Simulated assay, not measured.
Amino acid sequence: MVTTAGTRRLTERGAKTRARIVAAAADLMYVKGVGDTTLDDVLAASGVSKSQLYHHFNGKEALVRAVIEHMGEFVINRERDALGRVSTIRGLRRWRDALVQANALRHGAYGCAIGSLASEVSDHDDVARAALSRLFLEWQGLLAAVLQRMQDAGTLPPEASVDQLATGLMAALQGGYLLAQTAHDVAPMATSIDMALAHIESLSAG
């Protein structure tokens, strides 16, 4: 038996069906947007029946919340792997390069997976907004941890606020994603992050 984020306990087969529905919905909502993705779209993409979908989700709102959990887990795990051992400005620049290059493969078309969700659902679903807020705070915390390691190593001066710098870097990243999405060009994203990193580097105690 598998326990989902709610109270329902699923068989292994049921868990696989649910995961297939969520994965299909996540792909569709990332490309088409939440508003333009219908449950019929999800049924067609996942290959499940309507009764199976409604067995796991009582409507689109519940499915969107599951997509947020799914995409959030993917993004945070990726960022944890990328940032977990970074302790230098050079390491942050490698992190920047990886994100920009990955977005360049899509010509900046879709933006940040969780940022795009936030722009669509935050105003009308407080549960989803709170979940997204926690994800952004966790991501920002990973950046703050990098900056703290730099400060501990003497790269950043002790008076520098790692939390404020992490907030600025996250804002530059998300703003860069949005600019890349609207322009279908990753150049604004690269510039935005570069400016934030240049500011952090300018504070170097060395």
Rank of each mutant, 00 (worst) to 15 (best):
H184Y: 06
G59K: 01
L99S: 03
A23N: 03
M1E: 07
G84K: 11
L117N: 08
H107G: 15
S133D: 08
A180P: 10
R106S: 05
A24V: 09
R149I: 02
P188E: 03
A5G: 14
R18E: 10
H199G: 05
A15I: 12
I114L: 14
A172Q: 06
D194T: 02
I193R: 03
G59E: 07
H199S: 05
P158Y: 08
A131S: 03
E79R: 13
V127C: 01
V2S: 02
H107A: 11
K60S: 00
H70A: 01
E201I: 01
V186N: 10
S46M: 08
K50S: 08
V34K: 10
Y54F: 06
Q140G: 04
A153K: 12
G6S: 09
Q148V: 07
V42D: 01
R80K: 11
L92A: 05
G115S: 12
D97N: 11
E201L: 07
Q101D: 14
I193L: 11
L53C: 02
L117D: 08
P157T: 01
G35E: 15
R20Y: 00
R18F: 04
H56W: 15
S116K: 13
Q148T: 12
A118E: 12
S161W: 00
A25Q: 14
L135F: 14
I193E: 01
P158L: 10
V100I: 09
A82I: 10
K60A: 09
L92M: 14
H70C: 01
K32H: 15
E159V: 11
D152W: 04
W95I: 05
S116N: 11
A190R: 06
V121H: 14
T88S: 08
I89T: 13
E201Y: 10
A205L: 10
V100D: 12
R20T: 05
G108P: 10
A183S: 07
R149Q: 14
Q140E: 06
V146K: 13
T37P: 02
P158G: 10
P157G: 00
K60L: 00
A45M: 03
G47Y: 06
G168D: 14
